[in-house]
Simulated assay, not measured.
Amino acid sequence: MSNVLIVDDEPLARARVRRLLTMHPNYHVVGDADNGEQAVKLCKELQPDIVLLDINMPKLSGLEVAKALKLLAIPPAVVFLTAHSEHALEAFELAVDGYLVKPVTEQALTKTLLQLSKLNRTQVNRPVHSHITYQLAGAMRRVNIDDVVCCVAEQKYTRLIFVGGEAIIEHSLKQLESTYSQQLLRIHRNTLVNKLHIQSLHCSVSSGHHLRVRHYDEPLTISRRALKTVKQAMGE
């Protein structure tokens, strides 16, 4: 039996999804929410296996809720519900587990539930965030998070440096740090580095502490505030 939380600010939409779920006896609706803040609160209390989540909602959007849920110790599977296809890219970037266009049909819901049946909420080690998406020459591309070397803030954008290349993305360092907290380490207010690529720590009278990483020639400055955290990450 899988427990489901329905999140939508439209009562009729919630009722429709609840009614469709009655055709699937292995899925039990444990509750519903009509705004993003309530959704996060109920997820922490009820610990559902699956969250069917509308995107356009008051207080917190579905995108913001999904980001918050992915940070839980045991995150639920997240399926977006939306009438707006322009959110597909953001859903893709968040690595959500499904995407249903409203009004939800019985066939679409059944197909999504079959896909989700392969997932288990207790599979904590499944890679929730494994890629960063960027655009190049009008095409969407992905880079595996393990291949990301560092991220450097440059005015309104972030320079993503990875093995074999680099790209400009609109994600802020704060967003990247939150989403990929297991891999990316803050070493300065304008720099994140991938722990996998840390090579050596250096100190000089003129330039202070800096870090050398693999696949990038330039030394990266470490702030005083971050120095202790960097040393801990390096096992010093």
Rank of each mutant, 00 (worst) to 15 (best):
V4F: 11
D8N: 03
L12P: 08
L12G: 05
R16Q: 13
V17H: 06
V17L: 13
T22S: 12
M23H: 13
H24Q: 15
N26F: 08
H28R: 07
H28W: 11
V30Q: 05
V30W: 10
G31D: 12
D34P: 00
Q38F: 10
A39D: 12
A39I: 05
D49V: 07
V51I: 08
D54A: 02
D54P: 04
D54H: 03
N56K: 10
N56S: 14
N56A: 09
M57K: 07
M57Q: 07
P58D: 11
L60Q: 13
V65T: 11
K67F: 12
A68L: 07
A73P: 14
P76M: 13
V79W: 15
V79T: 08
T82V: 15
H84G: 03
H87T: 04
H87I: 05
A88K: 11
E90Y: 03
E90A: 08
Y99R: 12
V101P: 15
K102V: 04
T105W: 10
A108C: 09
T110L: 11
T112L: 07
L114R: 11
Q115C: 02
L116F: 08
S117A: 15
S117P: 04
K118A: 15
L119D: 08
L119F: 05
V124T: 14
V124F: 12
V124Q: 05
R126K: 10
P127D: 02
H129A: 09
S130I: 02
S130N: 06
H131F: 07
I132H: 06
G138K: 10
A139K: 14
D146G: 07
C151N: 00
V152A: 09
A153K: 14
E154K: 15
E154V: 10
Q155N: 15
Q155F: 10
Y157R: 04
Y157L: 11
T158D: 02
R159G: 08
L160K: 01
I161V: 12
V163A: 11
G165N: 01
A167C: 08
H171G: 12
K174F: 01
Q175H: 00
Q175K: 05
L176C: 02
L176H: 01
L176P: 01
E177C: 00
S178A: 14
Q183W: 00
Q183M: 00
L184Q: 01
L185P: 00
L185A: 01
I187E: 01
I187C: 00
L192E: 07
L196A: 07
C203N: 08
S204N: 00
G208P: 02
G208R: 05
G208A: 03
H209V: 02
E218V: 07
P219T: 03
L220R: 04
L220F: 03
T221K: 15
I222F: 11
A226N: 12
L227P: 15
K228C: 13
K228A: 15
A233L: 03
